[in-house]
Design a protein around this nucleic acid. Structure first.
Length: 849
RNA sequence: GCGGGUGUGGCGGAAUGGUAGACGCAGGGCACUCAAAAUGCUCCGCCGCAAGGCAUGGGAGUUCGACUCUCCCCACCCGCACCA
């Protein structure tokens, strides 16, 4: 007898889909469109299970929409610029372009057997000159529109390798290769003016109804709108030109609790003092030996230096506060200077305790007033507290009210001004690296910074570069940067900075609508296909990638590259969880862990030596821990449908899923069972009983409802469970052949988004016509979903004690009577009457005695 | 440090204000087999002979009723602007 043979089935159907052009997106018809997009991959060279999960989810959505009659756009491309290609060139030789395109070729070959419904004719890589040339054109438009500009900014500098380091390349404050202490260095760099759109990007979040609430919240906090007071202290003993010190505070109501002022090590005053005072210079230099990442700054031990300068309190000229330089004050936020209120800010309190500064309570709890000791009193701003050193508003008021009153009073007295600020900073796009999109400007000794002419685009990366030394090969290249000034024609040099790879991924979704257009976009195509109806990717992109893309959409509208309705380019967003696996390890002679691949382990022992392994609970698959499963191996051993079925089945899509060998084998066994059910159809009896026929039809229609609900609600695991249930019904049924065939065809349709190859096979065996992917998605018949009688649980004092059978539409009085006649209820009442009787028709009865 | 999330049987999970554990995995028993694999049937939260009790990370609260809502705590995961 024939067997389920995915190795034969899957390529056969893939060929047929290819021949029929089943997945070519067509814009010309009158059908509604649907654009499904998964975050495109970085071409590392191997696909991993995270990719399989991501693209399978997108494929389920795409195939479901296809079956519902939409014109579906489901493209794929490559986020192909970035550091790994340069690292590979440095480590193994070769060229980043060869490495990248080779990886793309390999990964495409690994992805195709998955049977994804992708329109491969639209594929591109961001390192294609055709793509980055259009990106350069947009950069020039942004520049002209005032959306791009240059200013100085700090970078991580490796003084040994003489190169700029990414945050990821700084490990415990040291360069990853050289091990040298990292320094901060200022460079002139290109920026996009995203902060000008802070308010708009924040307010528009409310309209993103189909985005996860958590992502909107993260973006909201990241943009960080705050209302506070800005004012100037007058200084005592400060150098010339620093007679005032501007500070910003979101808690001006605590002004009378200020016991010190603090400035950033990068504050102009600190820089001035640094020049004249060796102690300050030494301290500031020490502060600069911290990496630039906010995390590094925030987690570093809080240290400070008293400058000896003092400031006068604006409400009491006789009160003078010391001015400290403190390493935790960020120059990028506010004015780079604050006043410290130790009683009501934990960081300030730790600082005050460390350096013996005063602590003055401003307000206290109404319930349990107590002076602040080692824990700052920081209640929610909505909580009413008693002000003991307030100066505006009521004695008892909320923080919110007190802040508003303090700002109003300070404005009235001319002390300061209420100011709205955003945490969001402008987007620095300059990278001192080779493998990225060249920034298309020219530095001319006569004309200054000059945009390249559009007809000279793309400014292509030179091919002949070397990676034997760290640093930017474009800078070292003998000829590339020398050019004629586009304005005066004189000798000039090219910008050698390339763009942040986040720029590449901020508009690829728009390019997919017209990937070969000779402009960045084609208005007709973008107008038809945009926006992305469903975007799917990891939550790690919740802030930066998605925020930059939202900015880019607005900037592209402003420069005429997208229509107005693309302001929010992603209509719905889904963030999927990771794929995890157990970690297996043994110990070497010194007790250090030695990790082992899953396929090297069986029954808790190494297959090779029989040594017992330690098992560490599941974690994200990572090469260093060797807890990885190669999709290629799974597809080879079980077929793509098994990989797809398992990756969808066990966990809700937003949660992590644990890959287990047992689960994969079980998925394979299930698909075998389904195949056998279809192959045994011909042997089924011609006629069944009417009861059995009806029961199977009911089961099929419940499955239609449950699978559809699962797909629409992004709960594919529930769709899978519903399909298991239908499979069980088919296995147990005594229905006749025609009814079985109908149920099998329904099952084939419902399975098709998840296991498309097997679905085509079952569809064919059960007598379906054409391709199952082209068959219209089935509709559940409401008459087959409801039963005449239902079982109603009866609770006594909230605990389930009994149940009654009632008509589905029984009214309250009938249910009450039936409940009160129940044996358990009579026993509990013992002749008395219930204190309360809650009847929720169709759901539950609760008797309170 | 700051921001966000997650936590339910041996395991993945279902139920999102109304019967906690659907569906699957693992495990036990049985059938088929010379045997094994495969397949099929069946049992399966914990304690208890039972009646019953306990149980959704821990603790409190709201409610007739809480996995679900509120507050506090714990553990783990993600992000922190030059990783993609």
């Amino acid at each position: 007898m024939a067997r389920y043979d995915p190795a034969e089935i899957e390529p056969r159907w893939q060929d047929q889909w290819d021949r029929e052009g089943s997945f070519a997106a067509r814009a010309e018809s009158s059908q509604p469109k649907y654009y499904v997009l998964e975050m495109f991959p970085y071409p590392s060279g191997r696909i991993h299970m995270g990719h399989v999960r991501n693209y399978t989810m997108g494929d389920v959505v795409a195939r479901h929409k296809l079956a519902q009659g939409f014109n579906v756009l489901h493209p794929m491309g490559w986020d192909a610029f970035g550091m790994p290609a340069e690292n590979a060139a440095m480590e193994q030789g070769g060229h980043p372009a060869d490495w990248t395109y080779g990886n793309i070729r390999d990964m495409r070959a690994q992805m195709k057997p998955l049977g994804l419904s992708i329109d491969w004719s639209r594929e591109f890589a961001t390192c294609d000159p055709e793509y980055y040339g259009q990106q350069q054109a947009m950069f020039l438009d942004f520049l002209e529109a005032g959306l791009a500009y240059r200013r100085a900014a700090v970078v991580n500098w490796d003084p040994v390798d003489m190169t700029v380091l990414a945050n990821e390349q700084v490990i415990d404050g040291k360069g990853w290769r050289s091990g040298a202490e990292v320094e901060r260095r200022e460079l002139t760099q290109w920026f996009f003016r995203i902060s000008d759109m802070a308010e708009e990007l924040l307010d528009a979040l409310d309209g993103l109804e189909h985005w996860p609430e958590k992502v909107r919240l993260m973006q909201k906090n990241w943009i960080g709108r705050s209302r506070g007071l800005q004012f100037a202290f007058s200084t005592v003993g400060a150098p010339e030109g620093f007679d005032r010190l501007e500070v910003y505070s979101t808690r001006p109501d605590t002004l009378l609790g200020a016991t010190f002022a603090a400035i950033s090590p990068d504050h102009p005053l600190a820089r001035k003092l640094e020049r004249d005072d060796p102690a300050v210079a030494a301290f500031v230099a020490e502060c600069r030996r911290t990496a630039t990442s906010e995390e590094a700054l925030e987690t570093a031990e809080k240290v400070g230096l008293d400058t000896g300068i003092r400031v006068r309190h604006p409400f009491d000229e006789s009160l003078e506060l010391p001015v400290w330089i403190a390493n935790f004050i960020l120059m990028d936020y506010g004015t780079g200077a604050i006043f410290g209120v130790p009683a009501h800010d934990q960081r300030d309190l730790d600082f005050a305790r460390k350096y013996g500064l005063d602590v003055i309570d401003v307000f206290e709890s109404r319930d349990a007033p107590a002076p602040v000791a080692d824990v700052a009193f920081v209640p929610p701003k909505t909580e009413a507290v008693r002000y003991v050193r307030g100066f505006a508003g009521e004695e008892v008021q909320t923080g919110e009210d007190a802040i508003a009153a303090a700002i109003a009073l300070c404005e009235a007295q001319g002390v300061g001004q209420g100011v709205t600020r955003f945490r969001l900073r402008d987007w620095g796009v300059s990278r001192q690296r080779y493998w990225g999109c060249p920034i298309p400007v020219v530095h001319c000794p006569a004309c200054g910074v000059v945009p390249e002419r559009k007809e000279n685009l793309p400014i292509q990366l030179p091919r002949d570069v070397s990676f034997e030394h760290p640093g930017n090969p474009l800078e070292r290249h003998p000829t590339w940067k020398h050019c004629a000034c586009p304005q005066c024609g004189g000798d000039a040099t090219r910008e050698t900075d390339t763009m942040d790879t986040f720029v590449d991924s901020s508009w690829y979704f728009a390019r997919f609508t017209a990937p070969r257009a000779d402009k960045p976009t084609d208005p007709a195509q973008a107008g038809y296909w945009m926006n992305v109806d469903q975007y799917i990717g990891g939550v790690e992109h919740a802030i930066l990638h998605l925020l930059y893309s939202r900015f880019f959409a607005r900037a592209m509208i402003a420069t005429g590259h997208l229509p107005e309705h693309c302001r929010e380019p992603f209509g719905a967003l889904f963030t999927q969880g990771m794929v995890t696996h157990e970690i297996y390890l043994t110990r070497d002679a010194r007790g250090r862990p030695v990790y082992h691949l899953p396929e090297e382990v069986a029954d808790g022992r190494l297959i090779a030596t029989g040594a017992a392994v330690e098992v560490i609970p599941s974690a994200k698959m990572s090469k260093s821990k060797k807890n990885v499963v190669d999709p290629v191996t799974i597809v080879r051993d079980f077929g793509a449908d098994t990989a797809r079925w398992f990756i969808l089945s066990d966990s809700p899509p937003e949660r992590d899923v644990e890959w287990t060998a047992a689960g994969a084998e079980a998925a394979f066994r299930h698909l075998n069972r389904v195949w056998r059910l279809a192959s045994e159809l011909e042997a089924a009896p011609e006629d069944g009983t009417p009861e059995a026929d009806l029961a199977l039809r009911r089961a099929a229609h419940r499955a239609i409802r449950d699978v559809s609900d699962g797909i629409e609600g992004f709960a594919f695991n529930k769709s899978v469970a519903a399909l298991y249930t239908l499979t069980n019904a088919l296995r147990e049924t005594t229905a006749g052949r025609a009814v079985r065939a109908e149920a099998l065809r329904t099952m084939a349709q419902l399975m098709a988004p998840m296991v498309p190859h097997l679905a085509e096979e079952v569809w064919r065996m059960a007598g379906g016509t054409g391709l199952v992917l082209a068959a219209r998605w089935p509709q559940a018949d409401p008459a087959l979903l409801t039963l005449a009688t239902i079982t109603l649980p009866i609770q006594i004092n909230g605990k389930r004690r009994s149940e009654i059978e009632v008509a589905r539409d029984a009214d309250r009085a009938t249910i009450e009577a039936a409940a009160l006649a129940d044996e358990q209820v009579l026993k509990a009442l013992a002749g008395g009457t219930p204190k309360k009787l809650i009847v929720v028709p169709g759901r539950i009865v609760n008797v309170v005695v």
